[in-house]
Design a protein around this nucleic acid. Sequence first.
DNA 1: ATCAAGTCTGTAACTTGTTCTAGATTACCG
DNA 2: CGGTAATCTAGAACAAGTTACAGACTTGAT
Lengths: 206, 206
Amino acid sequence: MTAEAGAADPATPPLTERQEARRRRILHASAQLASRGGFDAVQMREVAEAAGVALGTLYRYFPSKVHLLVATMQDQLQRMHGTLRKRPPAGETPAERVAETLMRAFRALQREPHLADAMVRALTFADRSVSPEVDTVSRLTTAIILDAMGLPEPPSARQLSAVRVIEHTWHSALITWLSGRASIAQVKIDIETVCKLIDLTAEPRA
Amino acid sequence: MTAEAGAADPATPPLTERQEARRRRILHASAQLASRGGFDAVQMREVAEAAGVALGTLYRYFPSKVHLLVATMQDQLQRMHGTLRKRPPAGETPAERVAETLMRAFRALQREPHLADAMVRALTFADRSVSPEVDTVSRLTTAIILDAMGLPEPPSARQLSAVRVIEHTWHSALITWLSGRASIAQVKIDIETVCKLIDLTAEPRA
DNA sequence: ATCAAGTCTGTAACTTGTTCTAGATTACCG
DNA sequence: CGGTAATCTAGAACAAGTTACAGACTTGAT
């Protein structure tokens, strides 16, 4: 519970500069390899080599391939959150703004479909041992959606439920798209459909 | 395209009786192993041994572990569809009936959480090479939901969108539950929330 | 009954994620 | 600076999914 100055790093022993650099090289190598071949192309030996680090060291930083890819996703999401903040969505209603934001994110993912594949597959394949990290990703996603809604006050319980369902749909729709079972148009429709839930959960009264 | 008398098996060369029996033994062994340890406990060598079949034969019937587990899910889903048909949901509205049906299915999964884990993880981890099989599972799920809705006429495009979103939520909510990041109560709320979409897509006119 | 084609078995090999170990390097403390 | 604990490296070893292959068994047609 001791507050830290940084962004999100509770109770992690501070890293030296060289360690921070290693960590960054590893994440970079991971994203790089993922950008070509997707999940399968991220091979631990190759990541280690590309990052200029021994295999054992890679495993010290990220205890499994899934941990590594989920951390990669955290990294990318943070980047995207920053980008999205700069140009807030222009829609009239919260539902429109959320749909617009998600579609913008979706277009970004389309530019690197293999990277998206690696990250999303890792995310949904993650077992309990990765729960904390996956939860961080989930919180980031929630933050992005709530940002897009642009609420004047903290969200109600019903709104949070709607946001959770939107996240579910977002992840699952991505998977169906990545595995070639749904078209881009289809994903768009699904996102727009689920966003209608927001209107439904608008507070009946202030 | 030659029509077959069975249920769902287009363009598959007919199996001899012994082959059918082998296939059944394999699926049974798979479900059995999955029921204990989940995804990781389904080890191809063990499945082969438990089914009394050589490893190469197992791979001839199911070209990968994911194929095997998705086929296992098909099998279980078919069973569940049958069970659900017997006692149709009692709710007043389509939304209520769908939520009731999904919660019933959810309770069934809770009885075999490891099996659920194996099947759902395989389903979301499946890559393009498993698309046809995953699609079959998806169609089965859709059929179950449409059944529960109990519509007098074929569903509209908007209703089908809602059903797709419900499926997305169903899969993703299961995953968060299986990985311990959401409680049973939470899954229930998410299902109920997304089912409200059905009301939203009720035809404005007949 | 016999032959050819296809299938099944048993087993070894290969791949990639993961673990382990011994020795070199680095960081920190006095 | 010197010592010590932690970290890093290189590489072997292990586990489980997957592939390969030689020989035995089935099946179906003649």
